[in-house]
Design a protein around this nucleic acid. Structure first.
Length: 266
DNA sequence: CGGCATGTTGCGCA
DNA sequence: TTGCGCAACATGCC
Protein backbone atom coordinates (compact mmCIF):
# COMPACT_ATOMS: atom_id res chain seq x y z
CA UNK A 1 0.00 0.00 0.00
CA UNK A 2 2.66 2.39 0.85
CA UNK A 3 3.64 5.55 -1.01
CA UNK A 4 2.09 8.98 -0.94
CA UNK A 5 -0.76 8.23 -3.37
CA UNK A 6 -1.73 4.99 -1.62
CA UNK A 7 -1.59 6.59 1.81
CA UNK A 8 -3.71 9.44 0.51
CA UNK A 9 -6.25 6.84 -0.62
CA UNK A 10 -6.18 5.34 2.88
CA UNK A 11 -6.78 8.81 4.31
CA UNK A 12 -9.84 9.18 2.12
CA UNK A 13 -11.10 5.83 3.33
CA UNK A 14 -10.85 7.08 6.90
CA UNK A 15 -12.21 10.55 6.24
CA UNK A 16 -15.88 9.59 6.94
CA UNK A 17 -14.84 8.97 10.55
CA UNK A 18 -14.62 12.71 11.09
CA UNK A 19 -16.89 13.68 13.96
CA UNK A 20 -17.19 10.14 15.29
CA UNK A 21 -16.54 9.13 18.88
CA UNK A 22 -14.16 6.27 19.67
CA UNK A 23 -15.84 3.51 21.66
CA UNK A 24 -13.06 0.92 21.70
CA UNK A 25 -9.48 0.31 20.62
CA UNK A 26 -8.13 -3.21 20.64
CA UNK A 27 -4.92 -4.90 19.58
CA UNK A 28 -2.83 -7.79 20.74
CA UNK A 29 0.05 -6.88 18.52
CA UNK A 30 2.82 -5.30 20.54
CA UNK A 31 4.90 -4.71 17.47
CA UNK A 32 2.41 -2.71 15.44
CA UNK A 33 0.33 -1.19 18.20
CA UNK A 34 1.38 1.26 20.90
CA UNK A 35 -0.73 3.44 23.12
CA UNK A 36 0.07 5.99 25.78
CA UNK A 37 -3.42 7.35 25.94
CA UNK A 38 -6.90 6.00 26.53
CA UNK A 39 -8.72 7.07 23.39
CA UNK A 40 -12.15 5.81 24.43
CA UNK A 41 -14.61 8.68 24.45
CA UNK A 42 -12.41 10.89 22.28
CA UNK A 43 -13.84 12.50 19.18
CA UNK A 44 -12.10 12.40 15.79
CA UNK A 45 -11.81 15.99 14.62
CA UNK A 46 -9.75 15.57 11.49
CA UNK A 47 -8.22 12.85 9.36
CA UNK A 48 -4.84 14.08 8.17
CA UNK A 49 -1.82 12.81 6.30
CA UNK A 50 1.73 13.94 5.88
CA UNK A 51 3.94 11.89 3.60
CA UNK A 52 3.35 8.24 4.40
CA UNK A 53 1.95 8.95 7.86
CA UNK A 54 -1.72 9.23 8.73
CA UNK A 55 -2.85 11.22 11.73
CA UNK A 56 -6.30 11.27 13.27
CA UNK A 57 -6.60 14.43 15.30
CA UNK A 58 -8.74 13.78 18.36
CA UNK A 59 -10.35 16.35 20.61
CA UNK A 60 -7.52 15.30 22.91
CA UNK A 61 -4.52 13.48 21.46
CA UNK A 62 -3.85 11.69 18.19
CA UNK A 63 -3.83 8.38 16.42
CA UNK A 64 -0.86 7.92 14.09
CA UNK A 65 -0.51 5.18 11.55
CA UNK A 66 2.16 4.18 9.06
CA UNK A 67 1.30 1.44 6.58
CA UNK A 68 4.79 0.01 6.29
CA UNK A 69 4.87 -2.30 3.28
CA UNK A 70 1.58 -4.13 3.61
CA UNK A 71 -0.67 -2.09 5.89
CA UNK A 72 -4.20 -1.07 5.04
CA UNK A 73 -7.50 0.10 6.50
CA UNK A 74 -10.99 -1.18 5.94
CA UNK A 75 -14.23 0.07 7.38
CA UNK A 76 -16.76 -2.55 8.35
CA UNK A 77 -19.44 -3.36 10.88
CA UNK A 78 -18.95 -4.15 14.54
CA UNK A 79 -20.14 -7.70 14.06
CA UNK A 80 -17.83 -8.48 11.14
CA UNK A 81 -15.30 -11.18 12.10
CA UNK A 82 -11.61 -10.34 12.31
CA UNK A 83 -10.06 -9.95 8.87
CA UNK A 84 -6.99 -11.88 7.76
CA UNK A 85 -3.91 -10.19 9.25
CA UNK A 86 -6.02 -7.83 11.28
CA UNK A 87 -3.72 -6.19 13.82
CA UNK A 88 -5.79 -3.37 15.29
CA UNK A 89 -9.49 -2.78 15.63
CA UNK A 90 -10.99 0.60 16.44
CA UNK A 91 -14.73 1.02 16.80
CA UNK A 92 -16.40 4.38 16.55
CA UNK A 93 -19.95 5.66 16.73
CA UNK A 94 -21.55 8.62 15.05
CA UNK A 95 -25.20 9.54 15.08
CA UNK A 96 -25.93 6.20 16.69
CA UNK A 97 -24.22 4.27 13.92
CA UNK A 98 -21.20 2.12 14.70
CA UNK A 99 -18.30 1.70 12.31
CA UNK A 100 -15.49 -0.75 12.91
CA UNK A 101 -12.09 0.27 11.60
CA UNK A 102 -9.68 -2.58 10.96
CA UNK A 103 -5.97 -2.13 10.42
CA UNK A 104 -4.51 -5.11 8.57
CA UNK A 105 -0.82 -5.69 7.94
CA UNK A 106 0.60 -9.06 6.98
CA UNK A 107 4.27 -8.17 7.33
CA UNK A 108 3.73 -5.96 10.36
CA UNK A 109 6.19 -3.29 9.30
CA UNK A 110 3.48 -0.71 9.88
CA UNK A 111 2.49 1.16 13.04
CA UNK A 112 -0.66 2.18 14.84
CA UNK A 113 0.10 4.58 17.66
CA UNK A 114 -2.26 6.30 20.07
CA UNK A 115 -0.51 9.27 21.62
CA UNK A 116 -1.32 12.39 23.62
CA UNK A 117 1.21 14.41 21.62
CA UNK A 118 2.81 14.51 18.20
CA UNK A 119 5.45 11.84 17.69
CA UNK A 120 8.98 12.41 16.40
CA UNK A 121 8.47 10.53 13.16
CA UNK A 122 5.68 12.96 12.31
CA UNK A 123 7.48 16.10 13.42
CA UNK A 124 10.59 15.23 11.44
CA UNK A 125 8.80 14.90 8.13
CA UNK A 126 9.65 17.36 5.38
CA UNK A 127 7.01 19.15 3.30
CA UNK A 128 4.40 17.01 1.61
CA UNK A 129 4.43 17.49 -2.18
CA UNK A 130 0.63 17.33 -2.39
CA UNK A 131 -0.16 19.53 0.62
CA UNK A 132 2.72 21.96 0.54
CA UNK A 133 4.03 21.86 -3.00
CA UNK A 134 7.71 21.49 -3.82
CA UNK A 135 10.07 24.31 -2.91
CA UNK A 136 12.76 23.87 -5.54
CA UNK A 137 15.27 26.15 -3.88
CA UNK A 138 15.03 24.13 -0.71
CA UNK A 139 15.33 20.86 -2.60
CA UNK A 140 18.44 22.06 -4.39
CA UNK A 141 20.04 23.22 -1.14
CA UNK A 142 19.26 19.83 0.41
CA UNK A 143 20.75 18.01 -2.59
CA UNK A 144 23.93 20.07 -2.34
CA UNK A 145 24.47 19.04 1.27
CA UNK A 146 24.22 15.32 0.70
CA UNK A 147 26.85 12.96 -0.57
CA UNK A 148 24.60 10.27 -1.87
CA UNK A 149 23.07 9.31 -5.15
CA UNK A 150 20.16 11.52 -6.09
CA UNK A 151 17.69 8.64 -5.78
CA UNK A 152 18.76 7.86 -2.23
CA UNK A 153 18.34 11.51 -1.28
CA UNK A 154 14.86 11.59 -2.81
CA UNK A 155 13.87 8.80 -0.44
CA UNK A 156 14.81 10.89 2.61
CA UNK A 157 11.47 11.74 4.22
CA UNK A 158 12.93 14.96 5.60
CA UNK A 159 13.40 16.25 2.05
CA UNK A 160 9.93 15.54 0.66
CA UNK A 161 7.60 13.43 2.75
CA UNK A 162 5.91 10.58 0.93
CA UNK A 163 8.37 9.92 -1.89
CA UNK A 164 9.06 6.20 -1.97
CA UNK A 165 11.02 3.82 -4.14
CA UNK A 166 8.52 3.71 -7.00
CA UNK A 167 7.92 7.46 -7.16
CA UNK A 168 11.67 8.12 -7.10
CA UNK A 169 12.29 5.59 -9.87
CA UNK A 170 9.51 6.97 -12.03
CA UNK A 171 10.36 10.62 -11.46
CA UNK A 172 14.03 10.13 -12.29
CA UNK A 173 13.13 8.23 -15.42
CA UNK A 174 10.76 11.03 -16.40
CA UNK A 175 13.50 13.54 -15.73
CA UNK A 176 15.96 11.45 -17.76
CA UNK A 177 18.44 11.57 -14.88
CA UNK A 178 20.61 8.61 -13.90
CA UNK A 179 19.55 7.58 -10.35
CA UNK A 180 23.21 7.03 -9.37
CA UNK A 181 24.17 10.63 -10.04
CA UNK A 182 25.52 12.29 -6.89
CA UNK A 183 22.85 14.61 -5.55
CA UNK A 184 25.51 17.28 -5.15
CA UNK A 185 25.84 17.60 -8.89
CA UNK A 186 22.17 18.47 -9.36
CA UNK A 187 21.52 21.94 -10.69
CA UNK A 188 18.51 24.22 -10.78
CA UNK A 189 17.21 22.72 -13.98
CA UNK A 190 17.59 19.14 -12.75
CA UNK A 191 15.58 19.98 -9.64
CA UNK A 192 12.98 21.75 -11.72
CA UNK A 193 12.51 18.70 -13.90
CA UNK A 194 12.49 16.29 -10.95
CA UNK A 195 9.84 18.40 -9.21
CA UNK A 196 7.73 18.45 -12.34
CA UNK A 197 8.01 14.68 -12.75
CA UNK A 198 7.26 13.98 -9.10
CA UNK A 199 4.08 16.01 -9.32
CA UNK A 200 3.13 14.21 -12.51
CA UNK A 201 3.78 10.72 -11.13
CA UNK A 202 1.90 11.45 -7.91
CA UNK A 203 -1.12 12.77 -9.78
CA UNK A 204 -1.09 9.95 -12.29
CA UNK A 205 -0.83 7.29 -9.58
CA UNK A 206 -3.57 8.96 -7.57
CA UNK A 207 -5.85 9.01 -10.58
CA UNK A 208 -5.09 5.36 -11.22
CA UNK A 209 -5.89 4.41 -7.63
CA UNK A 210 -9.10 6.42 -7.73
CA UNK A 211 -10.23 4.61 -10.86
CA UNK A 212 -9.28 1.26 -9.38
CA UNK A 213 -11.46 1.89 -6.38
CA UNK A 214 -14.60 1.97 -8.49
CA UNK A 215 -14.28 0.43 -11.92
CA UNK A 216 -10.94 -1.31 -12.26
CA UNK A 217 -9.52 0.11 -15.43
CA UNK A 218 -7.10 2.88 -16.16
CA UNK A 219 -3.65 2.81 -17.60
CA UNK A 220 -0.94 1.21 -15.47
CA UNK A 221 0.78 4.28 -14.05
CA UNK A 222 4.33 2.94 -13.87
CA UNK A 223 6.51 3.29 -16.92
CA UNK A 224 9.67 1.60 -15.64
CA UNK A 225 9.09 0.19 -12.15
CA UNK A 226 8.50 -3.52 -12.60
CA UNK A 227 9.55 -3.36 -16.24
CA UNK A 228 13.22 -4.33 -16.06
CA UNK A 229 14.56 -5.88 -19.27
CA UNK A 230 11.69 -4.44 -21.28
CA UNK A 231 12.42 -1.71 -23.81
CA UNK A 232 12.52 1.84 -22.47
CA UNK A 233 9.25 3.59 -23.48
CA UNK A 234 11.32 6.60 -24.51
CA UNK A 235 14.35 5.25 -26.33
CA UNK A 236 13.90 1.50 -26.63
CA UNK A 237 17.04 0.50 -24.74
CA UNK A 238 16.38 -2.45 -22.40
CA UNK A 239 15.68 -1.17 -18.88
CA UNK A 240 18.20 -2.22 -16.28
CA UNK A 241 17.68 -3.33 -12.69
CA UNK A 242 20.34 -2.50 -10.10
CA UNK A 243 20.51 -2.22 -6.33
CA UNK A 244 21.12 1.30 -5.08
CA UNK A 245 21.29 2.11 -1.41
CA UNK A 246 19.85 -1.31 -0.74
CA UNK A 247 16.77 -0.72 -2.87
CA UNK A 248 15.88 -2.23 -6.20
CA UNK A 249 16.16 0.40 -8.89
CA UNK A 250 15.05 0.26 -12.51
CA UNK A 251 16.40 2.80 -14.96
CA UNK A 252 17.26 3.23 -18.59
CA UNK A 253 20.99 3.11 -19.33
CA UNK A 254 20.24 4.58 -22.75
CA UNK A 255 18.55 7.87 -21.92
CA UNK A 256 18.93 8.49 -18.18
CA UNK A 257 22.05 10.58 -18.00
CA UNK A 258 23.96 12.37 -15.31
CA UNK A 259 22.54 15.67 -16.39
CA UNK A 260 19.28 16.92 -17.80
CA UNK A 261 19.21 16.88 -21.61
CA UNK A 262 18.75 20.63 -22.00
CA UNK A 263 21.67 21.64 -19.87
CA UNK A 264 24.60 19.27 -20.08
CA UNK A 265 27.20 19.98 -17.45
CA UNK A 266 30.79 19.02 -17.90
C1' DC B 1 13.05 -23.90 -3.07
C1' DG B 2 15.01 -19.26 -4.09
C1' DG B 3 14.48 -14.64 -4.77
C1' DC B 4 12.16 -10.42 -4.50
C1' DA B 5 9.03 -6.87 -2.43
C1' DT B 6 5.66 0.18 -2.48
C1' DG B 7 9.54 0.90 4.30
C1' DT B 8 12.44 2.03 8.26
C1' DT B 9 16.03 1.38 11.62
C1' DG B 10 20.17 0.11 13.52
C1' DC B 11 24.79 -1.83 13.55
C1' DG B 12 29.62 -2.39 12.31
C1' DC B 13 33.29 -0.55 9.85
C1' DA B 14 36.16 2.79 7.28
C1' DT C 1 31.44 12.81 13.05
C1' DT C 2 30.06 11.08 8.69
C1' DG C 3 29.00 7.99 5.20
C1' DC C 4 27.99 3.57 3.57
C1' DG C 5 26.78 -1.22 2.93
C1' DC C 6 23.91 -4.57 4.87
C1' DA C 7 21.10 -7.16 7.85
C1' DA C 8 16.96 -7.29 10.22
C1' DC C 9 12.10 -7.06 10.73
C1' DA C 10 7.83 -10.91 8.86
C1' DT C 11 5.29 -12.68 5.33
C1' DG C 12 3.28 -13.26 0.65
C1' DC C 13 3.90 -14.16 -3.98
C1' DC C 14 5.95 -15.61 -8.39
Amino acid sequence: MPELPEVEMARRTLEPLTGATIVSVASEDRRVFASSLDAVGRVIRRVGRRGKWLRLELDEGFVFSHLGMTGGFQLTTAKAPALPFERVRLDVVRRGKTTSVRYTDSRRFGRFIVSATDIEAWSELGPDPLLDGIDQERVLAFMKKRKRAVKEVLLDQALLAGVGNILAIEALWGAAIDPRTPSRSMNERDVHVIARELRAVIRRTLRYREAGRHAGHGKEPFRVYGHAKEPCPRCGTPLKHIVLGGRGTTYCPGCQKRHTPDSPRK
